[in-house]
Nucleic acid binder design. Sequence first.
DNA 1: GTGATAAGTTATCAGTGATCGATTATCAGC
DNA 2: GCTGATAATCGATCACTGATAACTTATCAC
Lengths: 210, 210
Amino acid sequence: MKSAIVRSPRKAKGQGAERRQEILDAALALYAARGIHAVSTRDIAAAAGISQPALYAYFPSRDEITAVLCEEAFFQLRARVETATDGLVPSRDSFKRLCRVYIDFGLEQPDAYRVAFMIEKARAGLDDANERALAAGLEAFGSFRAQVARFIAAGMTRPGDEPLLTQSLWAGLHGLASLLIARPGFPWVELEALIARHIDVLADGVLNPA
Amino acid sequence: MKSAIVRSPRKAKGQGAERRQEILDAALALYAARGIHAVSTRDIAAAAGISQPALYAYFPSRDEITAVLCEEAFFQLRARVETATDGLVPSRDSFKRLCRVYIDFGLEQPDAYRVAFMIEKARAGLDDANERALAAGLEAFGSFRAQVARFIAAGMTRPGDEPLLTQSLWAGLHGLASLLIARPGFPWVELEALIARHIDVLADGVLNPA
DNA sequence: GTGATAAGTTATCAGTGATCGATTATCAGC
DNA sequence: GCTGATAATCGATCACTGATAACTTATCAC
């Protein structure tokens, strides 16, 4: 007796999942090169070597492509945050290291960072991918929170409960990252000095005086 | 001899500058109600009681309308910043007052704030209005800088030159304002406590210890 | 082979920002 | 009052966008 028909995948030219990843790669590259709003579905399709309607066999909408990239960006951020203080005991230096990892993520992957934290959804979407991206974002924030909790547990922080301190620190870091991304033409002072000083400001504000 | 023909304005239905302002008002109201990206030129025209092509008699592009609104937002912010510490001597409290004025501006006028600091121009425009908006932004920042300079001159700040301290403080304030605007669905802690604590963090980081 | 189906195509839709040419409203000069 | 010039406006339309429908082709199980 033939086993239950499992409807095995047939694949073809662009075989299944590979084609999907090719589309995501093409989209991310174009986003990085031209900026998200300057990239059309036709651009993405051409870069992926397929026709524009073929995109919709893999993604239900353009926003979904962006949402998936957003989710991937959150995974990356989470991985970075989780390993930021590997092998380091809580100290002012390891605190600054955590901050630095966050800012560097924004500067190295501005498009991912934009998608993750700066883009406001036009439609307050209930899309599947949008929700998954949101969940991934909360996970990344959770990792950040866990890191901050280590410094709190070590008695290094000024008074204030953990959610409050974490959200304030996050806001402080996001402020510099997002402004540097959104206003590259602004007459910023020297970048390294600004980042270092800003992290010092946040460390002075969050950690106990030495 | 008739004086040189001066080509005096004829005006009409929507007489000149008034019509222009009506368009700006309509656009701002729609931006506030639906979000910038959900508003089309046809929407703006309908709200202003004219046809869509008529917009282009007053503004060369949709981006220009947004840029003018951006400029107006900067003027408002500047006015608020300049009067933030009126009648107050430099102190930790007046420093916090300045911070609070900035954050409140963002929360009370999220669309203006968005246009001013969060929106990235699709076309890296050399538009006239875009440059004026940028200039207005620099002026607003200059006022903020002048306020910070008062605290520096009073010897209240930690080491660091004025541009560095100002940019760091700005980034810290912008971080909270922009995140609250861009991610209203995030599980924030109680708003007043968060703002107060965040400003305390920044004050501790920027001002000398008491 | 043959049929079923996955994958991809061309053709097309409605909506967008923007432009063109024609039309209307206003006013100076007679 | 009329008339011509011009400011102000509109309907029609363009190229482009995201998205959909109907059709064709490639692949595989049998």
